[in-house]
Design a binder for these strands. Sequence first.
DNA 1: GTTCTTCTCAACCGCAAGGTTGAACAAGGA
DNA 2: TCCTTGTTCAACCTTGCGGTTGAGAAGAAC
Lengths: 121, 121
Amino acid sequence: MDDQLSRVFSALADPIRRDMVARLAVADAGVNELAEPYDVSVQAVSKHLKVLEEAGLVSRTKQAQRRPVHLEAEVFDLMTKWIERYRRQAEERYRRLDDVLAEMDTEQSPIDTRHTERGAS
Amino acid sequence: MDDQLSRVFSALADPIRRDMVARLAVADAGVNELAEPYDVSVQAVSKHLKVLEEAGLVSRTKQAQRRPVHLEAEVFDLMTKWIERYRRQAEERYRRLDDVLAEMDTEQSPIDTRHTERGAS
DNA sequence: GTTCTTCTCAACCGCAAGGTTGAACAAGGA
DNA sequence: TCCTTGTTCAACCTTGCGGTTGAGAAGAAC
């Protein structure tokens, strides 16, 4: 759990934390408020928030005795970039593979042909 | 770790697994081949692959005694959709907040929070 | 046949994650 | 001052994860 990417993915791997993010996208909220819908203690939610905060997904501003939690949308870009990069790469490879296959009708070299058909499944 | 989204995020929370995905985006590979760069046993890598497979990120086709691993880019969409949804929502809220703030010189009402939509994760 | 390669399964270990309860702290309000 | 509210800290427990080693299954090659 070193790099930020690991922390972010890990943070969002938990359904409760994802739901909290979903709710924080609508409005900032305090810990008690956030904890209300779930069947766990307030302390547990506080821990979840700590995880989200360390991942950079959330920030807490001190306001009186409350600690409103605010969603930081920036970090999402980090994930999106990573994902898009490899998805694009995979799709590119797929496309090139199709080209190779299309060319393979003319030539007859003993190249691997597995995985070449609509292997996605 | 019930739903697929949890499995996918969890799978990508590990640096080794992310690196494997990165390499598989370039070309399919066998387990030994994949294990080579890392300082862990082949069995450990096999376990990592199982995780990736159960997340739907990867598929293994049987070919002789080898088990080539293939990246399935589809699942990425699942994540991207989730991420984009809430990022967009957060940005939208930000924009509206600016509007409210701009309007606050004239009126004196608290911030409007009446969006009620909240999706399950 | 036997042997080598590739990969997975099973059992175990150490440690961190997510949960609990109980106590503490900080800031308003009575 | 004392009390209430909101939040976190400290211990503890149990479960799951990532790693190990050892053995075994399935084919290819000899």
